[in-house]
Design a binder for these strands. Structure first.
Length: 467
RNA sequence: GGCCCCAUCGUCUAGAGGCCUAGGACACGGCCCUCUCAAGGCUGAAACACGGGUUCGAAUCCCGUUGGGGCCA
């Protein structure tokens, strides 16, 4: 489908991918996919001291995990700012040749003094344009900005936002040492990559009028802007490490399925009617940048986990098995054949909010209980309990077929004849077989484990009782 | 400090002047179901920050205040 929509996600590789960044990437991706446009990944690595190869790897890795595929970007060359200095130099030269930018040699001490003076007067410091008409040929390159008037940023989320030129100054495009500034690089990059819509964090809104003026000076069409609100911590301060996990990778390790993370991030500040649970396809279909909220949103781990649970409950069996295997490996547990694992997960999926919990809650499927719940053992592993386990073993050995319905009939029959309630035999068996007081429906568990395994576990439990 | 953004239940949100005695979801409480734990069903408590306007009528429009956030330093 032909579309002029071209959007980008432009992270600085200074660490792991933050959930705020992930959400910005997601909104860009959804916008591109919804409109049949292109999603571009660009690495803003001009801060060489903090940008590392390893960090680029982390970002790529996180985006892949979330399945936010990009149409242009690394590993292809030309999508890192450090590879694009020629472009910045060329555009700077054009601005200077056209008289839209000029060199300034005001010493830092002078600027600092003026800044302090302005502060003392409780005013915003603005460079006064002293070097505008001095015709200098070296120094810091500044953009000539109109002294009067306003620049209006027509934001897709916020509507028109007006900035008075009196608040802006002739900002620096290229420093005296020849390095381009962040805002200048962004403009040149967006222009040369033919970006149609700039969807980014709210923290960039204040820089936008400066950039718009730069587009104008360069003679380029200004793209559309959409400034997405920030993700906040519980105290409504911008989400940071002190609020807990902020890296996308941390949620992967917690066992949140990627589709749940995507669903949660999308619903944080965006909605479509009363629907809460979305598949990726539904998100692409329903996403509209106009429905993105202009207010900041607090990150809520509980709701994330609820969505994680919903996606675990709804996942295709094979998909769920594939998601769980890495967690089995990490826990040092054996990975059963797929069909068998799917059957086990079928009994576990509504009992765990995360993939990690899924493994924990179903541990007894993968290994024999290492111990028994102490309080329950004290209550159930008695002389009478031992006798009942014996009777059960005897009958289970002869049960045919060894299926859940047959097991239930057996248990109900035995409970009746012993004058007991079903729960008495069930909890006793559950403890013997799983070591715990809570598990999926007992008869499903027994049928899945199989007769031989069940009988061995019952025998092991009886041995513990007599000891 | 200046400028900019934001403001509906604890949280995410619906709401684009009358449909609102403000809806949904998470979390929380109760009840039902039940071999345990879940899941599920029903149900309860819970919000339009404040003050002025505009209007027959405002959560919705305007102004101000307060509070939060961001950018510039």
């Amino acid at each position: 489908m032909a579309s002029d929509v071209r959007v980008r996600f432009a992270p600085s590789p200074t660490g792991l991918l933050h959930v705020g960044g992930a959400r910005t990437a997601l909104f860009n991706w959804l916008f591109a996919r919804h409109h049949g446009g292109a999603f571009i990944l660009r690495i803003e690595d001009t801060d060489r001291s903090r940008s590392t190869e390893e960090n680029i790897g982390f970002i790529v890795d996180a985006l892949r995990w979330l399945e936010l595929d990009w149409d242009e970007g690394p590993p292809a060359p030309g999508y890192r700012q450090t590879e694009r200095f020629d472009l910045y130099r060329e555009h700077a030269g054009r601005l200077r040749a056209a008289g839209r930018a000029y060199y300034c040699d005001c010493p830092p001490e002078l600027l600092d003094a003026q800044r302090k003076a302005a502060e003392a007067r409780k005013e915003t410091f603005r460079y006064n344009g002293r070097c505008r008409d001095r015709g200098l040929t070296a120094g810091a390159l500044r953009l000539r900005i109109p002294d009067v008037g306003t620049t209006v940023v027509d934001d897709l989320i916020h509507g028109p936002v007006a900035f008075d030129h009196a608040q802006l100054d002739d900002w620096i495009l290229v420093r005296t040492d020849g390095t381009p500034t962040y805002n200048f690089c962004v403009v040149v990059d967006d222009v040369t990559m033919r970006i149609s819509h700039v969807i980014r964090g709210n923290d960039h809104l204040s820089n936008t009028p400066k950039q718009v003026l730069c587009y104008d000076a360069l003679g380029y069409r200004v793209p559309a802007f959409a400034h997405v609100s920030m993700i906040l911590g519980a105290d409504r301060a911008r989400l940071s490490k002190r609020h807990g996990a902020t890296a996308v990778q941390a949620y992967r390790e917690q066992g949140i399925p990627p589709e749940a993370m995507v669903n949660y991030l999308a619903r944080l500040g965006w909605s479509s009617g009363d629907q809460e649970v979305f598949t990726r396809g539904q998100l692409v279909e329903r996403f509209d940048i106009k429905d993105v909220s202009s207010a900041g949103a607090v990150f809520d781990q509980a709701k994330l986990e609820w969505l994680s649970h919903e996606h675990i409950k709804a996942a295709d069996g094979g998909r769920l098995a594939a998601l769980v295997r890495p967690f089995l490996d990490a826990a040092g547990l054996p990975s059963p054949p797929t069909e068998r694992l799917i059957a086990m997960l079928q009994t576990l999926r509504e009992r765990a909010k995360t993939l990690r919990e899924l493994v924990e809650v179903g541990r007894f499927y993968f290994e024999r209980p290492a111990s028994y719940d102490a309080a329950a053992a004290a209550k159930l592993f008695t002389a009478a309990g031992r006798e009942r386990l014996g009777a059960l073993s005897e009958q289970l050995a002869a049960l045919e077929p060894f299926t859940a319905p047959a097991l239930e009939a057996l248990y109900r029959g035995l409970a009746d004849s012993l004058g007991l309630k079903l729960v008495d035999l069930a909890q006793l068996t559950r403890l013997a077989v799983t070591g715990r007081t809570a598990s999926p429906p007992l008869f499903d568990v027994l049928a899945l484990l199989g007769r031989a395994e069940v009988l061995e576990r019952l025998a092991a439990a009886r041995a513990v009782v007599s000891a």
